[in-house]
């Protein structure tokens, strides 16, 4: 009877909190993670709504006002063809963030399906899938991109579509890591009694895998995915800096830094490359802070 009373008392005292609510409470206590979250929200709002408010269009040229230093009408100055740098930085944020997010969604989708199936079935299926993962992991990333970039230029693919290709490539190349993590977790989860109990209820494999096993790995998926977004943004900017990713006139933080083609620009027009550089830096840092905070908040071993 004692247990009955204690449960009743507990229910009266506090509303029942789900695991997600508990995680949120824990996250809120982590100052650094919350700082990361706020910065990230700010960057997202800036990228989404900034370009709408801005009086300039990201592509409007103003040849009478080339490489102008920051002023009241152009807070971050203008670039080599007179476009407003602030507007372009905000617009580039849209591109860079969405490349990061979409690439990670692709990676999470493939990674968790492959990882879950591999871990659940084991045996030959696991062996085959994990060899495919190995192959992807040692794929020559840069030569492949050089090839794709060359092909895209030859076929005169519109820069707007190149973004999708970049998202896709980053996504395709980053799922193997995630699928290994998921596989490992499923491997140990499937031995647990609740899976045996689910089987004894008459559930089908598909339901056991995707409804009972995968949700138990959500916390690691969320943590890895968050950290992966940072990685994807960095990759995108590196690629775009090299001219292999998003190409002008579509701005991305990476290709804006690419404007530094010589020491002269570097030294005398810092407003053209410093702002996008700072954006990359603080966004990636914010995501990493948030990701680390999530890791602690979602760790089931840390109760309350």
């Amino acid at each position: 009877m004692q247990t009955v009373r204690s449960v009743e008392a507990k229910i009266r005292e506090e509303k029942i909190l789900g695991p997600w609510q508990l995680a949120w409470i824990r996250l809120k206590r982590n100052k650094l993670a919350m700082l990361g979250l706020y910065i990230l929200i700010f960057m997202v709002l800036l990228s989404v709504f900034g370009p709408m408010i801005s009086p300039y269009n990201m592509e409007t040229l103003d040849l009478s006002n080339i490489s102008a230093p920051p002023s009241l009408s152009h807070p971050l100055g203008t670039d080599e063809v007179g476009r407003d740098v602030l507007t372009r930085v905000m617009y580039a944020g849209r591109i860079s963030l969405s490349v990061g997010i979409v690439a990670v969604l692709i990676s999470v989708l493939i990674g968790s399906i492959v990882g879950a199936i591999s871990g659940y079935y084991g045996g030959i299926i696991d062996a085959v899938l994990m060899r495919i993962v190995d192959i992807f992991m040692c794929f020559p990333f840069l030569p492949l991109l050089l090839m794709v970039a060359a092909v895209m230029s030859d076929y005169k693919i519109h820069p707007n579509y190149r973004i999708y290709v970049v998202m896709f490539i980053i996504g395709i190349l980053s799922w193997p890591g995630l699928s290994r993590i998921i596989r490992g977790q499923i491997l140990s989860l499937r031995e647990q009694e609740f899976i045996q109990a689910a089987e004894a209820l008459g559930l089908r494999d598909r339901r056991k895998i995707f409804r009972h096993l995968l949700p138990n790995t959500f916390s690691s998926i969320i943590v890895s995915a968050t950290l992966e977004v940072a990685g994807a943004i960095l990759t995108e900017s590196a690629l775009s800096y090299l001219g292999l990713g998003v190409t002008p006139p579509t701005p991305s933080w990476g290709n804006m830094v690419n404007a530094v083609t010589d020491a002269y620009v570097f030294q005398f027009y810092p407003w053209r490359w410093v702002p996008p550089g700072i954006c990359i830096f603080i966004t990636v840092m914010a995501i990493n802070l948030l990701g680390d905070g999530l890791r602690d908040a979602l760790d089931p071993k840390l109760k309350h």
């Binding site: 009694e193 609740f194 045996q196 689910a198 008459g202 089908r204 009972h212 959500f218």
Partner: peptide
Amino acid sequence: VREIRGNKISMIFQEPMTSLNPVFT
């Protein structure tokens, strides 16, 4: 067999702590 499991024949296990899926109510 799946039709029988949990329906005509059901089973309870030794460990009540781990026989329920922790992420669902």
